[in-house]
């Protein structure tokens, strides 16, 4: 009798808890073992689930590179655009359909080297979108060249003797360009990352989340920093949470302390609000607002 009962118990098939948000027909993904991008995707998916948004109205836009592939794995309206141009594509998408929630998801090289100009202008305009930057301090897909985020003295294939090219402090850049929400976490801080993404998505206007993430294949190995797990231990031991920190003070040195936290949270009128309010004042009833 007991045996029969046991036989009748259905063992649930192991399922990824965020599977409904993934394009399972595209798995396995391209990311290396120990890479942090998958962790950020997991956090993003959980944040989206918790946000209770209508997911048919969420669009994700990526540029090119390892993180640029995120759009292709998410079961959302998703766009894999050209190198550095996710933000202006997203600007057109958002302005043309204001009902959409737009997330730009890309890497540090894509967003801040070739795409740097677009980033500062979208932040300045306060176009309503969330930009998630997975910052692995290097160009991964092309094979380990230095990025505008690579700390000085770290090695990349194009600065083989160590970089002397001063990097950006991304939260400071976002803050000074006008972003309304700015946070930085590492992939060690999964709950904080999830919460930050949730807050950034809920924020009206331009929001920015930087996630420090290991590239074991091309950054850690060349710089003799161990594997992905070693990097996670490093993040655990060397991160310091400082919510509200002055973004000027959060620049990163090679293997130095990583200041994490929510740095900026302020309201500004969005580009669309500014446009509609101004044109309504100018034209009065003659103004024909864009209907979307």
């Amino acid at each position: 009798m007991l045996d029969q009962q046991t036989a009748e118990i259905e063992v649930p098939e192991a399922q990824n808890p965020v599977e409904s948000l993934l394009r399972m027909d595209r798995m396995p993904h391209i990311w290396c073992p120990g890479c942090g991008i998958g962790t950020t995707v997991n956090c993003f998916a959980r944040a989206l689930e918790q946000s209770k948004l209508d997911l048919d109205k969420v669009a994700i836009v990526s540029g090119i590179g390892c993180t640029g592939r995120v759009a292709g794995y998410l079961n959302l309206d998703s766009f894999h655009t050209t190198h550095g141009r996710a933000i202006p594509f997203a600007t057109g998408l958002k302005l043309a359909n204001p009902d959409l929630k737009i997330v730009v998801y890309s890497g540090d090289g894509d967003l801040f080297a070739i795409g740097g100009n677009h980033f500062i202008h979208a932040a300045r305009r306060n176009v309503d979108m969330t930009v998630i930057c997975v910052n692995n301090l290097i160009y991964g897909m092309t094979g380990g060249q230095v990025a505008p985020t690579t700390p000085v003295t770290a090695k990349g294939t194009t600065y083989p003797y160590g970089s002397y090219d001063p990097p950006f402090n991304l939260p400071y850049l976002a803050d000074s360009s006008g972003a309304g929400y700015v946070a930085r976490w590492t992939v060690y801080h999964v709950r904080h990352v999830t919460k930050a993404i949730k807050e950034a998505i809920a924020h009206r206007g331009f929001s920015f989340v930087e996630i420090i993430s290991p590239c074991p294949t091309l950054y850690s190995r060349r710089n003799r920093l161990g594997d992905g797990l070693d990097q996670m231990k490093f993040y655990k031991e060397n991160s310091e949470i400082k919510n509200g920190a002055d973004t000027k003070e959060v620049g990163m040195d090679f293997q130095g302390k990583i200041i994490v936290g929510k740095f900026v949270d302020r309201e500004r009128k969005t580009y669309r609000q500014l446009m509609n309010e101004h044109l309504s004042n100018v034209f009065g009833e003659q103004f024909t607002p864009y209907e979307g």
Partner: peptide, 8 residues
Amino acid sequence: IAIQGAVW
């Protein structure tokens, strides 16, 4: 590229 976002 902004125009192509608007098209989609």
